[in-house]
């Protein structure tokens, strides 16, 4: 990889970051608030995919079950909000909360706590087994959510008023967008930091050559488990935001199609690239929006586009603009 390519990627990333920030502000200025919602959706899906990218891109752990954490985050937001709204204690007299920071921390914690046992079993396997067992765990949680009547089952759980953030009116689309954008940037920073840390180096080395990592005395299992839990926590926060965006948490956030879509976002943008999920999310939401308005057969065209990207545009969108990645 050349220095030029590096600069091009940095430039491209900067453009993406600025674009995602400026467009919704412009939309507000010209009185088209819907595009703010669209941009918020992009930012949230991007954050979820940044989480997955940590496991999938850096660690080579193809989790086909990350919707589980996305959904768990969503349900944490929904359940906390509904208890706070109805003032019913849920556990140990805790009455839920409608404060976003509390919800985010809890979503991260719960997602990570669920990810540890799932990861501990799944990481004993590798390759296709890993893909399938993560899928199976997500299905397990999905069926649990559908048939668990306390929080709405398949009907899902409504959040009547969007949760609050100190000092901001979250009901305003643009304020909520800025919150999501801020968290996305924080997520990206964390990803960047991890990638360049010793931990990240070991994680990537374990992906490329497991035996060599083990030989220098690092246990790949523990590193991967930590990465998996961290990845789940980030995706969980995104889930909480997503529930707040829709004012609704539902089992479809846990479905295997959702897991597939998260992978799609990453590959569309560029696997293991810092801004891959951002590029992927922007592209995906635009496709869905534009094609959905044009034809009811939009899923067919989405499929064709995806297939084209996998077969002919390896490296995703960022690969097209910025050349080959460091990881071959």
């Amino acid at each position: 990889m050349t220095a030029g390519a590096m600069n091009r990627e940095t430039l491209f990333n900067t453009v993406l970051a600025v674009l995602l920030l400026v467009l919704p502000l412009a939309a507000v200025a010209i009185g088209e608030p819907f595009y703010v919602t669209l941009a918020t959706r992009m930012a949230i899906l991007a954050l979820a995919a940044v989480g997955l990218n940590l496991a999938l891109g850096l660690g080579g752990l193809v989790s086909f079950g990350h919707a589980a954490f996305f959904g768990i985050g969503g349900y944490v937001a929904g359940i906390f909000a509904s208890h706070a709204f109805n003032q019913e204690p849920m556990l140990f007299g805790f009455e839920g909360s409608d404060q976003m920071p509390v919800i985010w921390l809890s979503a991260m914690l719960v997602s990570a706590l669920v990810a540890v046992p799932i990861g501990a079993i799944s990481l004993r396997t590798s390759g296709v087994y890993f893909i399938m067992i993560t899928l199976a765990f997500a299905q397990m949680i999905y069926y649990f959510a559908i048939s668990w009547p306390a929080y709405g089952g398949e009907d899902g759980l409504s959040i009547l008023t969007r949760n609050a953030f100190p000092g901001l009116n979250t009901a305003q689309p643009i304020s909520f967008f800025l919150i999501c954008y801020g968290l996305l940037m924080a997520g990206l920073l964390l990803f960047w930091f991890v990638r360049n840390s010793r931990f990240g180096a070991a994680l990537q080395a374990a992906r490329q050559n497991e035996a060599r990592v083990a030989a220098v005395g690092i246990a790949p299992f523990r590193i991967r488990l930590a990465a998996f839990a961290m990845s789940a926590a980030i995706t969980g926060v995104a889930g909480a935001l997503f529930a707040d965006l829709n004012r609704f948490a539902s089992p479809s956030m846990l479905s295997w199609q959702m897991s597939g879509e998260l992978i799609v976002l990453i590959v569309l943008g560029g696997t293991a690239r810092l801004f891959g999920p951002v590029a992927g999310a922007i592209l995906f939401v635009l496709f869905e929006f534009a094609l959905g308005g044009l034809t009811e057969r939009w899923q067919l065209f989405l499929g064709l586009i995806l297939l084209g990207v996998v077969l002919f545009a390896r490296g995703g969108l960022i690969g097209l603009f910025a050349g080959k990645a460091r990881h071959g």
Binding site: E32, F34, L38, M253, G292, G293
Partner: peptide
Amino acid sequence: TEDDAQKPELAVQIADKMIQS
């Protein structure tokens, strides 16, 4: 008219678009 593909999130998004845009 728009297709919700039987997905709640998509339905919410379309509703927002129809109301706002």
